[in-house]
Amino acid sequence: MPDLWLPGAERHPLGDTAPTDTRYAPRVIWHITWDKNATRAKPADLVPFDQLVRYFTGSGSSVAPHLLWDPFSGRTAQFYPADSRSKSVVDAPGGTRTNRTGRVCLQVETLFFPYCRVGGRTFATVRDTPAKGLDKILAWARSWGVPDDWPMGTPTWSADRDEHTWETRGGHYGHGQTPENQHTDPGPMPKWSGASPVPKPPPFPGRSAFGPGKSNASVLLLGQQLVRRGFGKHYRVGPSRDWGEADRLNTRDFQLAQHWSGSDADGYPGPQTWARLFG
Rank of each mutant, 00 (worst) to 15 (best):
L67A: 04
W274Y: 15
L222T: 08
F113G: 00
T57E: 10
F79W: 08
H175G: 07
C116M: 08
P205R: 08
F72K: 00
H234A: 15
F113C: 00
A41K: 14
D242L: 11
G267D: 09
R54A: 13
L46N: 02
P269A: 05
R27N: 05
T110M: 00
S86V: 08
D148W: 13
T39I: 07
G133M: 06
K200M: 09
G270V: 02
L46T: 02
V28Y: 04
D148P: 07
V227A: 03
T122W: 03
L221H: 12
D162N: 15
M1C: 10
G15P: 08
R142A: 14
P212Y: 13
G270L: 06
G120L: 03
Q107L: 10
L68C: 01
I32S: 01
Y115Q: 06
P269G: 08
L277R: 02
K214N: 09
T184L: 06
T57W: 11
Q51I: 02
P239E: 08
G58S: 02
R276A: 13
R248Q: 13
P269N: 05
H66L: 07
T165K: 14
W140C: 03
R229A: 08
T251G: 01
G267S: 11
Q224M: 10
T251L: 03
T273R: 00
V126R: 00
D253Y: 06
D16M: 13
Y55H: 09
T39G: 08
W274G: 03
R228C: 01
A25E: 04
Y115A: 01
G279E: 10
F278G: 04
R169H: 13
R229T: 06
R97L: 11
M189T: 03
T22R: 13
F112Y: 12
T154W: 15
R161L: 11
W69I: 01
G120P: 08
R169C: 05
G170Q: 04
Q177C: 05
N181A: 05
D253A: 14
S62I: 09
R228D: 02
T273P: 00
R23P: 01
A9V: 01
Q177P: 07
A38D: 07
G244C: 10
W166Y: 15
A195T: 08
T39S: 15
G171P: 07
V118W: 04
T17G: 02
H183P: 00
S193A: 14
T122F: 03
N37M: 13
R75I: 00
I137N: 01
F112E: 02
S86W: 10
P203A: 15
I137E: 03
R23K: 12
W150V: 01
G279T: 03
